[in-house]
């Protein structure tokens, strides 16, 4: 591939290869663009069930700062999708719009086919959300918090007990669930929030920087749970700064920069556009370095 030109034949000039990706991504019809010469991707577009769908979604803060700019993105079912981007790229804003925390200024968001703006409660029931800051309801005891979450998501009585017991054992929280969350360490708080978001067995699991603050053992456990969920046909969509994790764990990555989608495809597809065996970190830096 020539520097300054796009692999798809687009011959617009750019400062670097990153810009070459960027110029293609701008046109909405080319979303999931780097899949369009990939037979599997075409299949996906036709056959696979889309779990998260953002159509030309925009969000501006205080009428001045455009955090997300006409973002169109689809996340298929049964995949782990990493959402990457530098600080302030619009990752958290996007996740917050999908979960209903922020209202989109324009565009449509659908979760499992349900329009978030039209049927917010049903859409929220499809989601399990883990925020980047796990300091939630600190004065509740661990078990009280989990019971609260089970009630909110109306988890059947016979299932909640079993699920809480199973996850508490998995995450080794069983011996502190009688304590207030306030007395937990950061990692323990994260784990209890994780369990809370899993109790209703959501179709979509959205995690904002989930690995921050977890010890290696819990981190490993979380990764295996992410994989397990994808194998069960559930969708995992998470933001991360840890490129290594994204590279090893994700079926596909979406890269956002300055509110615009730069790339949405598999790591292998990304590599096709760069030199073989180049590290994701390097590709990422090139892609987002447009200053």
């Amino acid at each position: 591939m020539q520097a300054g030109s796009c692999a798809d034949g687009c011959n617009k000039e750019g400062k670097n290869r990153g810009f070459a990706f960027f110029c293609c991504e701008l046109s909405p019809e080319l979303l999931n663009l780097h899949n369009h010469n990939n037979p599997r991707s075409n299949e996906l577009a036709v056959e696979e069930h889309v779990m998260i769908e953002l159509i030309r979604v925009s969000k501006t803060y205080n009428g001045a700062v455009k955090a997300v700019d006409e973002l169109t993105l689809t996340v298929p079912a049964g995949e782990i999708v990493g959402f990457l981007g530098p600080n302030g790229a619009g990752k958290t804003t996007t996740l917050k719009m999908i979960t209903g925390i922020l209202n989109a200024d324009a565009g449509d968001i659908r979760v499992n086919g349900i329009n978030l703006a039209e049927r917010p409660l049903e859409a929220k029931k499809e989601i399990g959300y883990i925020p980047d800051n796990p300091d939630v309801f600190l004065r509740l005891k661990g078990l009280e918090y989990l019971r609260f979450m089970a009630d909110m998501y109306q988890v059947p009585a016979d299932l909640r007990k079993q699920r809480i017991a199973d996850y508490a054992e998995k995450f080794e929280l069983g011996n502190v669930l009688g304590n207030k969350i306030m007395s937990y360490s950061h990692g323990m708080r994260q784990k209890v929030v994780l369990i809370g978001a899993l109790l209703h067995d959501p179709e979509v699991w959205i995690l904002d920087e989930p690995l921050t603050g977890l010890d290696p053992k819990s981190s490993f456990l979380l990764k295996s749970i992410l994989r397990e969920r994808a194998q069960q046909g559930k969708t995992v969509f998470f933001s991360t700064h840890v490129l290594d994790v994204a590279e090893k764990l994700c079926d596909r990555v979406a890269i956002i920069h300055k509110g615009k989608l730069l790339f949405n495809g598999s790591i292998a597809e990304m590599r096709e556009h760069f030199k073989a065996n180049e590290s994701l970190e390097k590709m990422f830096l090139e892609m987002t370095d447009d200053e």
Partner: peptide
């Protein structure tokens, strides 16, 4: 706030989980 003694959950606590509450009550 300091971390007190670790307190797990007993059978009574777990039994409470068997009853579900309405969102309002929760």
């Amino acid at each position: 706030e300091s971390q007190g003694a670790k307190r797990g959950v007993n059978t009574t606590d777990m039994e409470k989980l068997k009853t579900s509450q309405s969102p309002f009550r929760a």
